[in-house]
């Protein structure tokens, strides 16, 4: 928390000292501030903050990649190929052990990725019901969500 505060202060100061105030200036200031906090990790005791920010950035990259890949497959399915050859399924996905915020983030990211949508959650908040656009193997979809979204979200929420 303290590290985030320091980082924001550094970026605001950088933005104010720049020739003209701009969003880009703020972004550059944030990166420079983060580099400084990363360098002075042992003094500031900011290991946790650095780990979370890096986890968040890595998650953004992984998510963008899987987003574009699934956009490509949906686009291809809508242009070429018979619609009767696709196999949409409802599958369950276990979310026990996640906090409510993590569940919210996970379901949001699942819906945001084309090809999978969160349809429902059971009454006891233990299982998501997902709709998958086209899959032969439900387990492969679960593994994929585990590997990209779940691990990525847990990297910066915990």
């Amino acid at each position: 928390m303290m590290s985030l505060f320091i980082n924001l202060i550094i970026s605001v100061i950088w933005m104010l000292l720049d020739r003209e105030m701009s969003v880009l200036g703020f972004a550059i200031g944030y990166v420079i501030g983060f580099a400084m906090i990363w360098l002075f990790q042992p003094i500031l005791q900011s290991r946790n903050y650095v780990r979370r920010v890096l986890g968040f950035v890595r998650f953004m990259f992984i998510f963008s990649r899987s987003f574009l890949v699934s956009c490509w497959s949906i686009g291809r399915a809508s242009l070429i190929g018979s619609i009767h050859s696709i196999e949409p399924r409802l599958i369950s996905y276990d979310v026990r052990g996640l906090s409510r915020v993590e569940m919210f983030l996970l379901s949001h990211c699942i819906s945001l990725t084309p090809g999978t949508t969160t349809v429902d959650i059971t009454e006891d908040f233990s299982t998501f019901i997902l709709h998958v656009f086209d899959t032969q193997d439900p387990d492969a979809v679960r593994r994929d969500i585990d590997k990209t979204l779940r691990r990525g979200i847990l990297a910066f929420t915990r």
Partner: peptide
């Protein structure tokens, strides 16, 4: 073919 698949296409 159905409303769920259309929601996928629309979301994309």
């Amino acid at each position: 073919p159905d409303i769920y698949c259309r929601a996928h296409a629309l979301g994309m």
